[in-house]
């Protein structure tokens, strides 16, 4: 795992950049515990559609979110998936990703407010956008990714 070697700047932070259907997303490394390859994802009947299933993470049951469905950009095929284990509040939740691009250091001034290009629905889940090597990266806000409203709305649907 990556250590924060630089102590002088509080403005600096590390993010994990990952790819979902060709789009680059990122999460602050503070929220990411580990990335695991998972093959035995057990589907849960009656769970909201954005839940891919549950896995046995070293003796503990953890829900795995189909990040693409959650963000409304398609869906993850179930076989073997890369799962980013994230700390959401006090819970551990897995998020599927296609590929992890890099772990990189950014400064706060690189993060720009979300433009009008994204829907307000999507904007709520974003902390901001930034450019890395000329490519656009959407920085997700871990705390708002699964906030109560989103979850209860989806649960009510199902």
């Amino acid at each position: 795992m990556v250590k924060v070697a630089d102590e002088k700047q509080e403005q600096e932070r590390h993010i994990v950049v990952f790819r979902l259907n060709g789009t680059l997303f990122a999460l602050d490394i503070q929220s990411v515990q580990e990335i695991v390859k998972q093959s035995d994802i057990v589907s849960v009947p009656g769970a909201p559609p954005f839940i891919l299933g549950i896995v046995n993470l070293r003796g503990r049951i953890m829900a795995v979110v189909d990040t693409k469905r959650l963000l409304g950009i398609g869906e993850t095929s179930a076989d073997k998936v890369l799962v980013m284990v994230a700390q959401i509040g006090e819970h551990l939740v897995g998020f599927t990703v296609d590929e992890v691009e890099q772990v990189t250091r950014i400064t706060s001034d690189m993060v720009e407010p979300v433009s009008d290009l994204v829907s307000p629905e999507e904007a709520r889940r974003l902390e901001g956008v930034l450019k890395l090597d000329g490519k656009l990266v959407l920085l997700l806000d871990a705390n708002r990714l699964l906030d109560e409203e989103v979850v209860s709305a989806s649960l009510a649907q199902s």
């Binding site: 849960v44 009656g46 769970a47 909201p48 839940i51 549950i54 503990r60 049951i61 953890m62 829900a63 959401i88 509040g89 819970h91 551990l92 939740v93 699964l146 979850v151 649960l155």
Partner: peptide, 9 residues
Amino acid sequence: PLGYPLHNL
């Protein structure tokens, strides 16, 4: 427990 966010199933 099933864990968040499945705790209410």
